[in-house]
Design a protein around this nucleic acid. Structure first.
Length: 562
RNA sequence: UGUCCGAUGGUGUAAUUGGCAACACAUCUGGUUUUGGUCCAGAAGAGUCCAGGUUCGAGCCCUGGUCGGACAACCA
């Protein structure tokens, strides 16, 4: 949260609905005022900005109310999960500055305890071993508007169930031959209460428990009980689990265990992007992006590589709020968040992406001046540096126009502009190649207009960035645009999200000219390329081929008017 | 024909729990500026999905609608 919103939040005591619940719980002395949350990712993919919303809430609330937040991997499905993801998930959470100390847990840590809970349910005649096939179970479950039918195995004896369940665990049965089901109510209007499956048989090695188990708990059975075992007071999850809550509470009541409370909030949706892990995986596997950390991905690793700062993401997440209604956040808000943060932090440098040579005819041939320039006008403590200046420099191709419109403030024949931190120059002539493209612009400079000298009082409308031709560093720049051309690529019943992929989401520009100080840039150093945008050094960058990503362009009111 | 949830400017969230609907982004003016950035000043934009009811008073409470979302994996 920024200082600003924080102050406002405290002044007006503007709370989201979960904070209201928590404060009321504290007021009433529930759980002795203890607040304990958890973030429960499944290690089957990388975390994205939507997960950031969730874990900033989980960890943030714990921080805010002097409680704790556990990191718990929900690893109950060995077929889809992998340690690669565990490490990536931890790195992303730490990147945003959250700490779980020694509370790194795994649902698989509780397999033993869960097994005993299941036996307890069997003894209470609240669970049974069912030999129906997946198809039969599905057929018997009914539909949302029609009740289901009882399984023929529903009423066997406690002893028989206990024995069969032990055999399931012992590996006496093949995959998919039977399940352990809770005995709730096949006629419930809530589908999740129609004798949900607790365990299925899978003879697969688990990334943590190896071959110790061949029965694996389902989400509803593992998740809630894990919350309870850890003494979680407020278990926050997204809206789609709302219909699971009655079951969550049924287990607590039947087992008589610690009553964690599940609270649901609306997940984050961002315009022009998709947030489904499955679909993001599809982009990775089809090679539409270079990996989970492709700078166009909404993953935290992608945003990090793109040049987003962790502060900007936290600020963003705290700005969007928490509620229960479905929402779509404008990506412009995310972009605002990085600009706001980088404006304060990023040193200003000069880089010319589409160079055209500017020759200062009246400047001494061999003279090189070291001109001083400020690193960040927003933060004087960032100091100054010098840039070499000489007779031939590069400017941006679109900063010169042969025949400009009246509101064009840049260079044109006979027009004078300022070269940032250097001199005023006036364009005199230009050269074209056989195709009519301008190749060189000739100008003259006024020695009395040197930056910092107060000798000239006349004003110029435009200021251009530039790089000394002789000293320029050649570099590659990767410009990114939105990955999808539709504001809601995932929201069309008749069309696949892949149809909306933007073919121009990545533009690689080689031969960009940069000021020499950039040779020391290393991943993930952030910069503002003056007049262009915020950029960061990419991890592909090398000594011989420096690479920069455009994080986000500067706000451009000129372009909008054109 | 079911159950659950939701509905406040273009977008997102607030509203001291029943007291003149506020903040941010986006948009548009004007000013400052050695970045057409930043910053500063200002404008426009909702009367809270609809219809009733309770009340001195309703975005908040009640009733009935409408619209939107979730739920029928041995996924989470």
């Amino acid at each position: 949260m920024t200082d600003n919103t924080n102050n406002k939040a405290e002044d007006t005591k503007s709370l989201n609905f979960i904070e209201h619940i928590i404060e009321e719980d504290i007021r009433e002395g529930k759980h002795e005022g203890r607040i304990h949350t958890r973030f429960p990712p499944e290690p089957n993919g990388y975390l994205h900005i939507g997960h950031a919303k969730a874990f900033c809430l989980d960890f943030g609330l714990a921080e805010q109310y002097g409680g704790k937040c556990n990191l718990r991997f929900d690893d109950t499905n060995p077929a889809r999960e992998d340690v690669e993801y565990v490490d990536a998930i931890k790195e992303d959470i730490q990147w945003l500055g959250f700490e779980w100390e020694d509370r790194e847990y795994y649902a698989s840590d509780y397999f033993g305890e869960l097994y005993h809970y299941a036996e307890k349910l069997i003894r209470k005649e609240k669970a049974y071993v069912c030999h129906l096939s997946a198809k039969e179970i599905s057929d018997n479950r009914g539909t949302p508007t029609e009740p289901g039918k009882d399984s023929p195995y529903r009423n066997r004896s406690v002893e028989e169930n206990l024995e069969l369940f032990a055999k399931m665990k012992a590996g006496d049965f093949q995959d998919d031959t039977c399940t352990l089901r809770a005995k709730v109510d096949m006629t419930s209007p809530n589908m999740h209460m129609r004798d949900p499956i607790l365990y299925r048989i899978r003879h697969i090695a688990h990334h943590r428990t190896g071959n110790e188990w061949c029965i694996y708990p389902m989400y509803d059975w593992a998740h809630g009980q894990s919350d309870s075992i850890e003494g979680i007071t407020h278990s926050l999850c997204t809206l789609e689990f709302e219909v699971h809550r009655p079951l969550y509470e049924w287990f607590i009541a039947e087992l008589g265990i610690f009553p964690s409370r599940q609270i649901e909030f609306a997940r984050l949706n961002l315009s022009y992007t998709i947030m489904s892990k499955r679909k993001l995986l599809q982009l990775v596997e089809n090679g539409q992006v270079s990996g989970w950390d492709d700078p166009r991905m909404p993953t935290l690793s992608g945003l990090r590589r793109r040049g987003y700062t962790s502060d900007s993401i936290k600020n963003f997440v705290n700005t969007i709020g928490i509620a229960k209604r479905n929402n779509v956040i404008d990506v412009a808000l995310l972009e605002f968040a990085v600009r706001e943060d980088l404006n304060k932090k990023a040193p200003r440098v000069m880089a010319v992406l589409d160079p055209i040579k500017l020759i200062i005819d009246n400047y001494p041939d061999d003279l090189v001046e070291e001109l001083e320039t400020i690193n960040n006008p927003e933060d004087e403590s960032m100091g100054v540096r010098t840039m070499p200046f000489c007779k031939e420099i590069y400017i941006e191709r679109n900063d010169f126009m042969e025949d400009p419109p009246k509101k064009f403030f840049r260079l044109a024949p006979g027009r004078e502009v300022r070269l940032k931190s250097a001199y005023f120059v006036t364009a005199q002539s230009f050269e074209k190649d056989e195709n009519g493209n301008i190749t060189v612009v000739h100008c003259t400079y006024d020695p009395d207009t040197k930056s910092g000298s107060a000798t000239v009082t006349r004003k110029v409308k435009g200021t251009l960035h530039w790089v000394s031709a002789k000293h320029a560093l050649d570099a590659e720049v990767r410009q990114y645009d939105r990955l999808f051309m539709d504001s809601d690529p995932d929201g069309h019943k008749d069309k696949d999200f892949m149809e909306f992929l933007n073919p121009d989401s990545l533009t690689i520009i080689k031969g960009c000219k940069m000021e020499p100080s950039l040779s020391s840039a290393r991943y993930p150093d952030h910069f503002q390329f003056q007049r262009l945008g915020y950029f960061n050094c990419d991890k592909d960058s090398t000594e011989t081929n420096p690479v920069f990503n455009r994080t986000v362009p500067l706000r451009d009111t000129w372009k909008q008017k054109k």
